[in-house]
Computed example of a mutant assay.
Amino acid sequence: MRRLGTRWMACGLALLATVLGGALTLRAWSVQPRREAELSGLRLRLERAVWLHEPTDHGDTATLPALPGAPAPGQRRLAVELTVFNPRNVPLDFTSGELRLTGSTPGTEWRPSAGGPTAFTVRPAELLPVTLSFDVPSTPSALRLEWARGTERATLLSTRRPRSASEGPAGWPRRVEELPPGNVAAGSALFHGRLACTACHGNPGEPQGPRRLGPALGDFARVGATRVGGKSVAQYAYESLLNPSAFIAPECAGQAPCTGPSTMPLYGETLSPQEMADLISYLVNLRKEE
């Protein structure tokens, strides 16, 4: 009897695992982007989704007047073209509010901006084109276009908001505070090891030691805070690592003036956000650590 009970328990656990696995599979499938979905009788198809360009995307740095209906400054617009079809034999209602753009942070979402009808009655066998737009502020979050009717939901698109020309290199936040917390020891290992920063800047622990190309960094915590007005030493270090030619230091090897463009590598192309944070933490603590 004990052996029989053990077998029944094993079978029960296997059945439970199968059911749970099936449920998880269905849930995972439900959040995968599908360009076409049918919810509560209506069928919706995503025909086209385009992030609209800004004038500054093409090198125009002039401040342009805001046009009626244009996104607010700092926002990018996602234009979405859809078709709604009613395969049933009774009229069905559809509202643009059923669509939303959500971010990976819980509670972050954007509804379609006004600019046309927001509610439709779709007659049997009728096919309607619908154009919507979403105005999104700066965010590094992955975005999903979701359609919800009652308790049913479908994900139609996964995308990311393109960065404006004024927001810095793609893939990097604008402010250093948006990076993960940095580790001084890990930054030191990068500086003295893999990145070989001492080859150009010398050893920060030996201010009078030999330098080859770049400025000395032994007193960077103090000097870096004075480089650019209004920028903290951490923000200055961050922007210099992303774009070394943005500010040319006044003094390089042998007390000679530094010349541009900078020959320092573009570390935004080789470092992870965590490595960037670690290196900055090391630089802004040099006066204490070295």
Results as ranks from 00 to 15, higher is better:
residue 42 L to M: 03
residue 42 L to V: 03
residue 42 L to D: 07
residue 42 L to G: 07
residue 43 R to K: 15
residue 43 R to D: 08
residue 43 R to C: 10
residue 44 L to F: 03
residue 44 L to W: 06
residue 45 R to D: 09
residue 45 R to Y: 05
residue 45 R to M: 11
residue 46 L to P: 00
residue 46 L to E: 05
residue 46 L to F: 02
residue 46 L to V: 04
residue 47 E to S: 13
residue 47 E to T: 12
residue 49 A to D: 02
residue 49 A to S: 06
residue 49 A to H: 00
residue 49 A to N: 00
residue 50 V to P: 00
residue 50 V to K: 01
residue 50 V to W: 04
residue 51 W to G: 04
residue 51 W to C: 04
residue 52 L to V: 01
residue 53 H to T: 03
residue 53 H to K: 02
residue 53 H to Y: 02
residue 54 E to A: 11
residue 55 P to N: 05
residue 55 P to S: 04
residue 55 P to F: 01
residue 55 P to R: 00
residue 55 P to T: 01
residue 56 T to S: 14
residue 56 T to F: 03
residue 56 T to N: 12
residue 57 D to P: 11
residue 57 D to I: 15
residue 58 H to W: 08
residue 58 H to S: 10
residue 59 G to H: 07
residue 59 G to M: 09
residue 59 G to W: 06
residue 60 D to Q: 02
residue 60 D to E: 05
residue 60 D to G: 05
residue 61 T to F: 08
residue 61 T to P: 01
residue 62 A to P: 01
residue 63 T to K: 07
residue 63 T to N: 05
residue 64 L to R: 12
residue 64 L to T: 06
residue 65 P to S: 12
residue 65 P to V: 09
residue 65 P to Q: 10
residue 66 A to Y: 13
residue 66 A to F: 08
residue 66 A to G: 10
residue 67 L to Q: 14
residue 67 L to A: 15
residue 68 P to C: 13
residue 68 P to F: 13
residue 68 P to M: 11
residue 68 P to G: 14
residue 68 P to K: 08
residue 68 P to N: 14
residue 69 G to Y: 10
residue 69 G to V: 12
residue 69 G to E: 12
residue 69 G to S: 15
residue 69 G to N: 15
residue 70 A to G: 14
residue 70 A to P: 14
residue 70 A to L: 13
residue 71 P to N: 06
residue 71 P to V: 03
residue 71 P to H: 08
residue 72 A to S: 15
residue 72 A to C: 09
residue 72 A to G: 06
residue 74 G to T: 01
residue 74 G to W: 00
residue 74 G to L: 00
residue 76 R to Q: 03
residue 76 R to M: 02
residue 76 R to I: 04
residue 77 R to S: 10
residue 78 L to Q: 00
residue 78 L to A: 00
residue 78 L to I: 00
residue 79 A to P: 11
residue 79 A to E: 14
residue 79 A to K: 10
residue 79 A to W: 02
residue 80 V to G: 06
residue 80 V to E: 14
residue 80 V to P: 09
residue 80 V to Q: 11
residue 80 V to W: 08
residue 81 E to R: 14
residue 81 E to P: 05
residue 83 T to I: 15
residue 83 T to Y: 13
residue 84 V to K: 11
residue 85 F to P: 12
residue 85 F to I: 05
residue 86 N to R: 07
residue 86 N to G: 08
residue 87 P to D: 11
residue 87 P to H: 02
residue 88 R to N: 03
residue 89 N to A: 11
residue 89 N to L: 12
residue 90 V to K: 11
residue 90 V to C: 05
residue 90 V to D: 11
residue 91 P to T: 14
residue 92 L to I: 07
residue 92 L to E: 14
residue 93 D to S: 09
residue 93 D to T: 08
residue 93 D to P: 04
residue 94 F to K: 01
